[in-house]
C-alpha cells in the first residue's frame, strides 16, 4: 500500500482551473521531484497536499486511509482533523518567525502541541521541555547550525534560514515532507548547502516531495520525477525516463528551453 495516494485532484481559482486532475502515488522513503514551467500548478499542488488550499474535488489517502475527500451526501470537502501532522512543508520564502530565536522556531510548535494535553503536560513539564529541546539540538546539528541556536533569523544568511526552516519542519516528524522551490530565493552560492541537507534527509523514515528547478539535483536524489504542465501531470517516471529520455513533447521542450540570455 502506498504511503501517499493522490487521486484526481482538481482546483480552480475563480474561472482558472489550476489543477485539472492530478493523480500519483508515493511510497514510504521515496523522493519525488516535481518539475515544470511557471504557472503549471506545482505550488498549488503542494499547498493542497498541506491543506493550505482546499481542492475542489479528488481524494488524498495516507496509508490507505482517506484524509481528504468529497462527502458523497453533502458534496462538501472533508479534511480529517489532525492530518496536518502527517505532512510538512518548507516554503520558498522560509517563513521563519522573526521574533523567535532559531531554537525557539524549532520548539514553538512541539511545545504548543504538548501543552494541548494539559494534564500530561503539567505532570511532566520538565521532561517534555528537555526532550523537545534535545530534539531541537539534534535537528540543528543535522542541518549544521548548532552554533546558531540562539541567533535570530534576521542575522542568518538565506541558506541558513532555509536550513532552519527544514529543521523546524522535521521537528514534527512528518511522514511526507514537501519542499516548494527551496533554493529559488537563494543566491547561487548558497543553493548547494541547502540541497545537500535535503539530499541527506533521504531516509526510509520519510517520503519527500520536492518542487525544484535544479534538474541535476532532481536526477541525483529522486526515485520518481513528475513533469507538470498546465495543471496536469504530463510525464511521470524514473529520473532517467523523464529527465534524460523524455517522451512527451512538452517535457522535451521544457528541458531544451534555451536559457534566456
Amino acid at each position: 500500500m502506498p504511503l501517499l495516494e493522490v487521486k484526481d485532484l482538481r482546483k480552480s481559482f475563480g474561472e482558472t482551473e489550476v489543477l485539472k486532475g492530478v493523480s500519483f502515488t508515493l511510497e514510504g522513503g521515496e523522493v519525488l521531484s516535481i518539475i515544470g514551467a511557471s504557472g503549471g500548478g506545482k505550488t498549488t499542488l503542494l499547498r493542497c497536499l498541506n491543506f493550505l488550499e482546499t481542492p475542489d474535488s479528488g481524494e488524498i489517502l495516507v496509508n490507505g486511509e482517506r484524509v481528504f475527500y468529497i462527502d458523497e451526501q453533502t458534496g462538501k470537502p472533508v479534511t480529517v482533523p489532525g492530518v496536518q501532522n502527517i505532512m510538512g512543508l518548507v516554503f520558498q520564502q522560509f517563513n521563519l518567525f522573526p521574533q523567535y530565536s532559531v531554537k525557539e522556531n524549532l520548539t514553538l510548535a512541539p511545545i504548543l502541541h504538548a501543552k494541548s494535553d494539559k494534564a500530561k503536560y503539567r505532570q511532566n513539564k520538565k521532561e517534555i521541555h528537555d526532550e523537545i529541546e534535545q530534539q531541537a539540538d539534534e535537528m540543528l546539528e543535522m542541518v549544521g547550525l548548532s552554533e546558531k541556536a540562539d541567533k535570530y533569523p534576521c542575522f542568518l544568511s538565506g541558506g541558513q534560514q532555509q536550513r532552519v526552516a527544514i529543521a523546524r519542519a522535521l521537528m514534527l516528524s512528518p511522514e511526507v515532507l514537501c519542499f516548494d522551490e527551496p533554493t529559488s530565493s537563494l543566491d547561487p552560492e548558497l543553493t548547494g548547502e541547502v540541497l545537500k541537507v535535503i539530499k541527506d534527509l533521504k531516509s526510509p523514515e520519510r517520503a519527500m516531495v520536492v518542487v525544484t528547478h535544479e534538474l541535476e539535483f532532481a536526477r541525483a536524489v529522486s526515485d520518481k520525477v513528475i513533469f507538470m504542465a498546465d495543471g496536469v501531470i504530463d510525464e511521470m517516471g524514473t529520473p532517467d525516463e523523464v529527465l534524460v529520455n523524455p517522451k512527451s513533447e512538452k517535457t522535451i521542450a521544457f528541458l531544451n528551453v534555451p536559457k534566456g540570455y
Binding site: Q84, M87, F91, Q93, N95, L96, F97, Q99, L172
Partner: peptide, 25 residues
C-alpha cells in the same frame, strides 16, 4: 505576511495559537 500564518498552520497550530504566539508580537 501571509507566510507567517501559513507556516503556523503547516506546523499544526490553531488559528488562535497562530495569532497569539506568532502574529501578535
Amino acid at each position: 505576511p501571509k507566510g507567517q500564518y501559513e507556516a503556523g498552520k503547516v506546523l499544526g497550530l490553531t488559528r488562535t495559537q497562530v495569532f497569539f504566539k506568532i502574529v501578535l508580537m
